[in-house]
Design a protein around this nucleic acid. Structure first.
Lengths: 207, 207
DNA sequence: AAGGATAGAATGATCATTCTAACTAACTGA
DNA sequence: TCAGTTAGTTAGAATGATCATTCTATCCTT
């Protein structure tokens, strides 16, 4: 029984890693040419397996992109969860640093392109759109709570919308003005975050 | 000769209107299901002409989307050109109103989706990417000049990047949090613009 | 021997692009 | 005024490629 459980574990993890292989391939291909322009056979060769085998793990192409999106959102959730555990006085600085980090990661070439590709996919794949909207609602609530309860800021809802709009615009900025990254952008990000977590605006000069 | 010129004019405008018909169809279809997912035959029936006839006006599918993008950017240019003509004291208010208007238009369902679709296309169509980058460079220069020369603001470059990031993020916000539009969003937009055109931050409360 | 893992060919659909041909209207020279 | 010629307009079928999905068969591992 112990043996059998071990075997189950092994085959389970083998299963899991094969699935991850496909998702990794999907991420890589999406960044290279977009998910829609990536065929299953390209996905197969990127993942190092056959076309038929991919259908052993995923019902169809849409299921693959959904899995990819969920995995990316899970990662984002972890970052926010870390934020939520914090308490005390220096929370603001830590929060600013964390957001800054997340923003800069989003301006990392790979993540940034993946982010955009996911968004484009959501536009034409209703299932992905739902996943994204649901995630957004959760995230908004979390940030609103952080802004209100932990930072004691007024107009939390508005601030969250402003933060998210700015955040979502960054990949686009990276794409359209690649030369400004990351040096010039870091300064703009700092200034924006400072504004967003300041109870009633004052600082404008870069920190 | 006069007659011949008239005829030329007529056939020219006929030509032009046929082309516009295709571009209109491309915009409508792009918003409905994405440009890549739209086939030429769908485009043809939306535009009310045959498949072969479309190739009479456009070399290939990519040329159609390029034409669409150029037309949209031309419209954006007109809005900015209007801004540039202004002088005097109340320029700031007028500018804020103009930007606000443009931002709200970008959050109009149709324009917003088209904006996103164009961006997605740029991601996988190098020609579209170039058009977008070139346009962005021009627009950045114009806004930088407005911020520096007309409003006398410091850190113009940074402000422009912040404005554009926020601006580009708005369609995404509309998509992910449709319920917040347009009422709640207007307030966030106002506050953000006030911040961006304030020499050294102070106002935070909504106007 | 049994069940999951794997491969790759077969299928049927769709698509961008090309090709061929018909139609239209205007201009030619008389 | 008019046969005829030309050039642009329009259509729709033909082509060839590609793709998502399915099917069938082999290979491991136990």
């Amino acid at each position: 029984m112990n043996v059998s459980e071990n075997q189950d574990d092994q085959s389970q993890s083998r299963h899991r890693s094969r699935i991850d292989q496909v998702i990794d391939a999907a991420a890589a291909c999406s960044v290279r040419k977009g998910f829609h322009a990536t065929s299953i056979s390209m996905l197969a060769s990127e993942a190092g397996m056959s076309v038929g085998h991919i259908y052993h793990y995923f019902a169809n192409k849409s299921a693959i992109v959904c899995a990819l999106v969920r995995r990316e959102l899970d990662e984002a959730n972890k970052i926010v969860a870390e934020l939520e555990t914090l308490e005390g006085d220096e929370i603001l600085d830590h929060m600013k640093a964390t957001i800054r980090e997340a923003l800069m990661e989003h301006s990392d070439p790979f993540k940034s392109l993946l982010f955009q590709e996911i968004h484009a996919e959501a536009f034409r794949n209703e299932e992905v759109a739902l996943i994204l909207r649901e995630f957004d609602t959760q995230l908004r609530r979390k940030f609103q709570t952080i802004f209100e309860k932990k930072l004691g800021l007024p107009d939390a809802r508005e601030r969250v919308e402003m933060l998210f709009a700015f955040f979502h615009g960054l990949p686009s900025r990276r794409f359209r003005n690649p030369d400004a990254y990351p040096e010039q952008m870091r300064s703009a990000i700092n200034r924006m975050l400072t504004f967003l977590v300041t109870p009633s605006g004052t600082p404008t000069t870069t920190e």
